[in-house]
Design a protein around this nucleic acid. Structure first.
Length: 179
DNA sequence: TAGGCCATCTGGTCCT
DNA sequence: AGGACCAGATGGCCTA
């Protein structure tokens, strides 16, 4: 504990003055600490508020993502982790479908000199489902795009909600001939 | 009742 | 300096 600094005034003070000064300084320090405490507190409250807002925005974005993901039954609510993993696999499946479709599409008329007849619903009846052995499973996974899902990861997937999955054409099995 | 999911609070770190 | 982001802690709610 540092010694009290000697007063510059000398002996003009009445006896007991140093004690009074100490008391006042103590009160001032208490006031400063209280002020600091309330300042810290209000900063914390503001930070909490921002954090709450941030999480609400994050959840809103997650809800938007959920709303574009197909589930069965329709009102099935995926958990956060399920939503993210499902979205990952859904995107993978869509791009795979696109890739296969491009592979199978006939060349544009400009190259053939004649319009090719569309093949409506050539594969429209077969939708991707977890029951299809050749189709990429849409169950959740964190693995790479070349193998979007493993059976172990499927433990995380809402398997029942994905069964009967609608809206995504099945990817053709590897090596399947284009029609 | 245990386990999963979620919201919130909190302190630390990074960025502007 | 203040805000954004992150991860850990905690408590509530729900379901098997």
């Amino acid at each position: 504990m540092p010694a009290e600094p000697a007063s510059s005034g000398g002996g003009a003070e009445p006896p007991g003055a140093p004690r009074e000064r100490r008391r006042r300084r103590g009160r001032a320090r208490a006031r400063t600490e209280a002020l600091l405490h309330t300042l810290k507190r209000s900063r914390r409250v503001k930070a909490n508020d921002r954090e709450r807002n941030r999480m609400h925005h994050l959840n809103a974005a997650l809800d938007e993502l959920r709303s574009v993901l197909p589930t069965f039954p329709d009102d099935t609510k995926l958990t956060k982790i399920e939503t993210l993993r499902f979205a990952y696999n859904y995107i993978w499946a869509l791009s795979e479908t696109l890739r296969l479709a491009e592979q199978c599409l006939p060349p544009p008329p400009a190259f053939r000199g004649a319009a090719a007849p569309p093949s409506p619903g050539s594969d429209a009846g077969s939708w991707l489902s977890s029951a299809s052995p050749s189709a990429p499973s849409l169950c959740a996974s964190a693995s790479g795009p070349s193998s979007p899902a493993t059976s172990e990861d499927c433990a995380y997937a809402p398997a029942d909600s994905l069964r009967g999955f609608r809206g995504l054409p099945a990817a053709a099995p590897p090596g399947a001939p284009c029609r």
